[in-house]
Design a protein around this nucleic acid. Structure first.
Length: 511
RNA sequence: GGCGACGUAGCUCAGCUGGUAAGAGCGCUCGACUCAUAAUCGAGAGGUCGACAGUUCAAGUCUGUCCGUCGCUACCA
């Protein structure tokens, strides 16, 4: 199940598929960046990685938005889907696949998977009558309504009577409980696993999974008057991309190593409904979930309905650069709990960690090598004291990445960078005469930079390549293979070191 | 109402199954250095670990109550 031994395991990692009616914001970026960083770490380990993101495009809300815009639902979905695609390109997201739920391959997989559940007796027809909120695309019981309005959108509900297909969620309570209790890695961090257990314990009702009132969806194959309700088509995207129903060998290869990244708001769907659907279809390998909290602004939730201004990733990238933004997002927020997002915190982080500690280290080392070593980076000393720091940093970072704690991993990585700065202060190579003594000091500093740079590539794919070239390393930092590349002594020596402009110029707020 | 999370230095947070004299980064003060991006290095100040009670030889670390903040309770990461 775990795939971090670096021996060519597979690793399938996903983000949620984002609803096309949304505009990409910092929250979407947060989930996606964490998944991306973990995907990149696994590539460093030599794992074969399949990293999936995409867009969720069915449902009445999309259809109505398209009507308003005077477009077909598909054209509208395409236009909005592209906003996510370009946002992820801008953020250097290394997804291997981008799925759209409107794609043929997805329709086939959904129909195949749910047909299987139907054949297995877990889907049945029934009539549903109730008050329906179009915005939610959900029924409400009277107790939930606020003055006859939808409690979320505060708009009138519509009374509807529908023949629906229902998923026998109630049949899976025991299996879900067993899975959650037996597998400590089923849902992490643990708090969210407990929440999922709580949901199951509170009792599971069967859920309606089809609609006759809309056509913008995936037809129910055994009754084409119906389309599947958007959530039940959406979740299946993960299976689609892994090859479900299309390529059994592919599916068998990827599915056992599935890791879903998601925010806590959709824990119910991913931690309860989705595993039950898989079980209903006879798939007993259940995914691992990595659940994170919300980014808060001034302690308040950031969302449309929360009324807090949503911030676009593009403006953050304009301010801090792609890698500055990526690093700050990963380093400032512990993966799991809610945490405060602030511009000031990013500025602090950028200046402290990137400009002062890492960027400045590269600059000062390059300059001294230029002056004392003729611009040629010397080889490190195999027994340098810094070697211990490097070993510790790698061990801690590797553990943290494995546990999906990027902030911890980067903290560990930066300890090595700080120790390199300390090492220089202790040895004062700029005071020495050119010769073997300086060479050893500078070789060690360069080696520390090399190792830290490899370890930082998941967070900063561009800047690390610049640093990699500066210190004269051939190839790409991202092409290195861990753990070997983190072993002390990999810096070859005898290669040219270039001074260049600061990689991260210190940030001065516009004000 | 139900379920849950959180409350540790000015700020953001680490502190696993209880046991060396409570930690890190940032910020602040002082000092050093001058290779470097007004960067770096060192030293220091600063906390009765939300409150109360309990369990224990021993509690941020377990139990209970309370106070405070927040979230979820079908569809916004």
């Amino acid at each position: 199940m775990s795939s971090t031994d670096g021996s060519g395991s597979t690793f399938f990692v996903t983000t949620p598929i984002y609803y096309v009616n949304d505009v990409p914001h910092v929250g979407h970026a947060y989930t996606t960046l964490n998944a991306d960083a973990v995907a990149r770490w696994h590539r460093l380990l030599g794992d074969e990685v399949l990293f999936l993101t995409g867009t969720d495009e069915h449902g009445l809300k999309v259809q109505r938005a398209a009507d308003e815009a005077g477009l077909t639902a598909l054209d509208h979905a395409t236009a909005t889907s592209d906003r996510f695609r370009s946002a992820w390109e801008m953020l250097n997201i290394s997804n291997d696949d981008f799925i759209r739920t409107t794609e043929e391959r997805h329709h086939l997989a959904v129909q195949a998977l749910l047909s299987k559940a139907y054949d297995n007796g877990y889907i049945y027809a029934d009539t549903y009558e109730g008050d329906y909120c179009v915005s939610c695309e959900a029924y409400y019981v009277e107790d939930d309504l606020v003055d006859g309005n939808c409690p979320i959108h505060k708009r009138p509900v519509e009374h509807m009577v529908e023949d629906n297909y229902f998923f026998k969620l109630s049949a899976f309570a025991d299996q879900l409980t067993e899975w959650l209790e037996a597998d400590a890695h089923s849902i992490r961090p643990t708090g969210y696993r407990n929440e999922a257990l709580g949901i199951v314990r509170q009792g599971l009702d069967d859920v309606s999974i089809s609609r006759t009132s809309i056509s913008w969806g995936i037809p129910v194959p055994w009754d084409t008057d119906h389309v599947f309700y958007v959530w039940y088509d959406a979740l299946i995207n993960y299976a689609t991309a892994a090859g479900y129903g299309a390529d059994d060998a592919d599916f068998d290869k990827w599915w056992p190593t599935t890791h879903h990244f998601l925010g806590k708001d959709i824990l119910r769907f991913h931690g309860v409904y989705w595993p039950a659907m898989l079980l209903a279809a006879g798939i007993t390998d259940l995914p691992e979930l990595h659940v994170h909290g919300f980014l808060l602004i001034g302690g308040e939730k950031m969302s449309k309905s929360g009324g807090v201004t949503a911030i676009g990733p593009a403006e953050m990238v304009d301010e801090f650069g792609v890698d500055g933004f990526r690093y700050a997002m990963l380093r400032n927020h512990s993966f799991g709990p809610d945490s405060d997002f602030s511009y000031e915190a990013i500025v602090e982080r950028f200046n402290s960690d990137l400009a002062n500690t890492y960027g400045n280290l590269v600059s000062r080392v390059a300059t001294v090598v230029g002056k004392k070593c003729g611009g040629i980076g010397p080889a490190p000393d195999p027994d340098a004291t810094l070697a211990t720091a490097a070993r510790t940093a790698y061990a801690e970072a590797a553990t943290a990445w494995e546990a999906v704690q990027p902030s911890v991993a980067l903290d560990a990585t930066w300890r090595l960078v700080r120790e390199a700065n300390e090492y220089l202060a202790e040895n004062e190579p700029w005071k020495m005469e050119a010769g073997p003594e300086v060479d050893v000091v500078m070789g060690n500093a360069l080696e520390a930079i090399r190792i830290a740079t490899v370890m930082a590539t998941p967070a900063m794919p561009e800047a690390t390549e610049i640093a990699w070239k500066r210190i004269g390393m051939p190839g790409l930092a991202a092409e290195q293979r861990l753990p070997d590349a983190a072993v002390w002594g990999g810096y070859p020596g005898g290669v040219p070191v270039e001074v260049g402009d600061p990689i991260f110029p210190r940030f001065k707020p516009a004000s």
